[in-house]
Design a protein around this nucleic acid. Structure first.
Lengths: 206, 206
DNA sequence: GTGGTTTCGCTACGGGTCGTAGCGTAATGG
DNA sequence: CCATTACGCTACGACCCGTAGCGAAACCAC
């Protein structure tokens, strides 16, 4: 999760792993207290008990630092096996919503995504450390549902990945929009309604 | 669309309406060339041909200015009547995607939404000038579909608004996620697939 | 006209953050 | 012991922020 793994030299003083953890924790703390725009690298360094120069030796800037700090939050996502596709979806969406409800996730995620629009390297970093890592949940849930007979088996493998991408955009997009734009909680009731529309469609049986 | 309508005095020199338009246009221009993070109010003022102080007399800061500059982009959204609910959805989603594909919308929208997380007044401004103004499209499309018999008529009015909010989060969220996070175009093929899932569900008849 | 009021352009300023350079010191391996 | 790298600290120029102060311009009421 470090900023760069610059071919760790066999010689010289090694980088402090504790400093890395302290910096990332301090970054999340600062995100909670100050938010993205008022977060300064000097402040993070002070909170972490390291020098500002140490911070710059490991991360290129604010963007990369916050991506790493936020990415750790999403690693706890799991796909519980609850027996049905609907229950599986509801479970993982509720977890996702719970993470997004945390202020450090809110403040950081949208900001770095916004920055990534004009920074290809940053977008790739976000994709590697956050997005693609969670797309596995969609793949796994889909495979389970197909094994249960709840979803038709995939015919064209290319169309399968396209469908997975579509579902991911729909799920993640809806939860993010609900939480960050509409600014209302994605609670159990909302997730239940969302899951039903996702599975049976707008005209689905109520 | 001005920053504030401070009870326009009957006396004194009136504010230049041309300056407002020039400032908002310059803001969009700067968003395209520089992006959100490198956009400075001094630069916008220079581009618009006004003094920096004039800009500060009308907008409280970068956030409010960009909200107004971006909001104008979404006013051209229309809901065409194409005969079926699916066609109506595809039409309006394609328009929304086209606006979001413009660099000034990309760069600005996500950034101000991110800022709004810790700024209630800013979030309310976004809601008034962007979100709620487009939610009418969902209402209108839903009413049309019910008149056609494509959707069941709403029973509980409270549940009706809840459904509208859910649909709006799903549609807007999916398109935004596709465009800004996945960074891939929401083209006709994607919109077709999205609309089908939205209408008939994941297990829907192909 | 004349006077009162508000906006405008311009300049200047203190304050804060950025990102880097330089230096001496600490920690590792050969 | 020595080479190498990381670390803490200080200092620095550069940039942007947001505001204050000024004289000039534009409008209205009289």
């Amino acid at each position: 999760m470090q900023s760069r793994t610059p071919a760790p030299r066999a010689t010289g003083r090694p980088r402090s792993a504790a400093a890395d953890a302290a910096i990332l924790a301090a970054t999340r703390e600062a995100l909670v207290e100050l938010g993205w725009s008022k977060l300064t690298l000097g402040d993070v360094a002070t909170r972490a008990g390291v020098a500002k120069t140490t911070l710059y030796r490991r991360w290129a800037g604010k963007n990369e630092l916050v991506v790493d700090a936020v990415a750790e939050l999403f690693d706890e996502l799991r796909l519980p096996d609850r027996g049905t596709l609907a229950a599986d979806i509801e479970g993982v969406v509720l977890q996702f919503a719970a993470i997004l409800a945390r202020p450090e996730a809110k403040s950081g995620l949208m900001a770095v995504v916004a920055e990534s629009i004009r920074d290809d390297a940053l977008r790739e970093r976000i994709r590697e450390s956050i997005v693609d890592r969670q797309k596995r949940l969609v793949l796994e849930g889909r495979a389970r549902a197909q094994a249960r007979g709840e979803l038709p088996p995939e015919t064209d493998p290319l169309e399968a990945t396209r469908t997975v991408d579509l579902i991911f955009d729909m799920v993640a997009g809806a939860v993010v929009h609900r939480t960050l734009v509409s600014a209302e909680p994605a609670d159990e009731e909302w997730v239940r309604n969302f899951t039903q529309v996702l599975l049976t469609g707008l005209a689905g049986t109520p």
